[in-house]
């Protein structure tokens, strides 16, 4: 796969981030993130030579990222009957504007970093920064606990970009480790949300502290 094609696929990642920030439906955001994850794994798979073991690992990652985690999250959302609104703390348009600035910043930062010459042309590093900042921005700008989990998943995708595409060695094992962390995070979040929803009516994590105090 040549570099310009890969770059255009990577740009789709950023577009998905923007879609998530702009949408106000939680379930569609979760699906978008699942699609982003699958896209990134396939991209990494196609961009390098792989042996059988690595192919197996790839498929495990695709299953977890693309099916298990979105299934768990969507189940939680339906089960606790969270209303489908994102409930933004910072409005949709301002979020997108700030994210635009973040993307510009990422591209600027990437030019100043001392990269290897073979990575100069690809936009892996700026996309990594853009995705990471996007995940953080989502955590900051949205109020619900589920959207925070979505933010973490975006950050996880960012880490995946850096670890699997920039390096050639056995990074999939590391990636699996990170993925397990994220999965555990999703599990815990589901359990916590379930419990909070059964005790309180509202699972708004912004007010979690005050809720717990009362």
């Amino acid at each position: 796969m040549n570099i310009s094609l890969m770059n255009s696929f990577l740009l789709i990642t950023v577009l998905i981030n923007m879609y998530v920030m702009g949408s106000n439906r939680i379930i569609s955001a979760i699906r978008a993130i699942a699609f982003q994850g699958v896209l990134l794994v396939l991209l990494a798979f196609l961009s390098k030579e792989t042996n059988n073991t690595e192919a197996l690992l790839f498929s495990i990652i695709i299953v977890i990222k693309g099916f298990v985690m979105p299934y768990l999250l969507i189940r939680v959302v339906r089960k606790v009957s969270i209303d489908q609104e994102m409930r933004p703390l910072i409005g949709y348009t301002p979020t997108l504007l700030i994210y635009g600035l973040c993307v510009i910043f990422s591209f600027y930062i990437a030019t100043t970093l001392p990269l290897l010459s073979e990575h100069k042309e690809s936009i892996i590093v700026p996309i990594f920064f853009a995705t990471l900042l996007g995940g953080m921005l989502l955590v900051i700008a949205r109020q619900k606990a589920v959207t925070h989990v979505i933010g973490y998943l975006i950050m996880e995708n960012a880490v995946f970009i850096l670890s699997s595409m920039l390096t050639d060695s056995m990074t999939f094992l590391t990636e699996i480790g990170v993925l397990l962390d994220a999965l555990a995070g999703v599990f815990i979040m589901g359990v916590v949300l379930n419990h909070i929803a059964s005790i309180f009516d509202d699972e708004d994590s912004g007010k979690l502290l005050t809720m717990l105090k009362e």
């Binding site: 900042l133 953080m136 955590v139 900051i140 700008a141 502290l209």
Partner: peptide, 19 residues
Amino acid sequence: GYMGLYVLYILATLIVMLL
């Protein structure tokens, strides 16, 4: 006590360090 704010601190730190 608002979690988004803490992430904002992390974000701000990250940006400052990158700069």
